[in-house]
């Protein structure tokens, strides 16, 4: 299997596929993804799932890091309200998410590129639908061109030039 070293192409028509980084909680959404597998449901292969114990573990910096490194979308999956394995981690996740979404929009990242979904362990069909829907939306948006290439934060000394 050759390594996909070719540069990502620019539009859906050229075979460009958006890459999604997904953070799934261990107890609900990750299990839903497992159930989708056991049920042999088919969905778009664009997401790469990173398992965390709770959606509350998703640090906004993870999302930033994903976008900075070429993700075209980030999906966070947690338990429904009231179902959190840790009582309220999903509330905390949502609280951060709302703020993060606004910050990202300010950076030119469209709202549709970051998504939070509550998918219970039994909702394999919802997982499939969310995956397919997100890919369809990202394809409509096209590749993400961050205005400022993220190369880490400038040192304080460099900032002096900017402010001068």
């Amino acid at each position: 299997m050759p390594e996909p070293t070719e540069k990502p192409q620019e539009s859906a028509a050229d075979g460009w596929e958006p890459k999604i980084v997904a953070f799934f909680c261990n107890w609900c959404t990750y299990l839903a993804a497992d159930l989708a597998g056991t049920s042999r449901m088919k969905y778009a292969p664009n997401a790469r799932v990173i398992r965390v114990m709770c959606s509350g573990r998703v640090d906004p910096q993870f999302v930033m890091e994903a976008f900075a490194n070429g993700a075209e979308g980030v999906l966070v999956g947690g338990c429904h309200f009231g179902d959190c394995h840790y009582q309220s981690g999903n509330h905390k996740a949502l609280r951060r998410f709302r703020l993060l979404q606004r910050v990202l929009m300010g950076m030119g990242i469209e709202k549709e590129r970051i998504r939070i979904e509550w998918i219970s362990a039994a909702e394999a069909d919802k997982l499939r639908d969310v995956m397919n829907d997100m890919v369809a939306r990202l394809k409509a948006l096209g590749p993400l061109h961050l205005e400022v290439p993220a190369e880490g934060f400038p040192e304080v000394a460099d900032l002096a030039e900017v402010t001068a």
């Binding site: 965390v52 114990m53 709770c54 509350g56 573990r57 981690g89 905390k92 951060r96």
Partner: peptide
Amino acid sequence: GCGTCVAA
């Protein structure tokens, strides 16, 4: 071990 405090 939910990690909510870690993220915050």
